[in-house]
Amino acid sequence: MLPSSSLTAISVGYFLALLFGFISTAFISRWMATTYGARSSLGLHFALITIVAAPLCVGSITHLFPDVFLNVLVLIPAMIWSMYLLYTGIPIALEITAEKGMLMASALVGWLLVASVSLLGISVGLWTLGIGPFLGV
């Protein structure tokens, strides 16, 4: 069992990362809207991102059971569902054709991948600098 200070730090950090992720993705999505001729209301984009991420958020209840296999079993289908919602939801919510939606969704996937790897890199960089678990570096 981790010490409670560590648990608090991880939980708060995770929550802040999620907040940042949702808000920044909504902004990026709205920024892309002009290129693809989509509706550009920030609230609409935020709502869309929330719906797209919903399967992952609800599915992450499996984190309560720290077993890799269980988490994978639940979260992989959840992610597939989220991707499906992204590709089908963009044309519907942002009122563009399916084809333009496909292009915009792919661009957003690009952003999400870059954001994920940045999160990975920033976390790792912080750990190495001493913020986080105790490492012999």
Partner: peptide, 30 residues
């Protein structure tokens, strides 16, 4: 066209991840 468009997204990822992993403090872990 679908393939080429998506390939550009992954190209962006890979060419972002690469420089990031080239930073020493990330490379220590990776």
């Amino acid at each position: 066209l679908k393939f080429i468009v998506l390939s550009l997204a992954f190209y962006g990822l890979a060419t972002f991840e690469g420089p990031m992993m080239a930073i020493r403090s990330v490379n220590v872990i990776s």
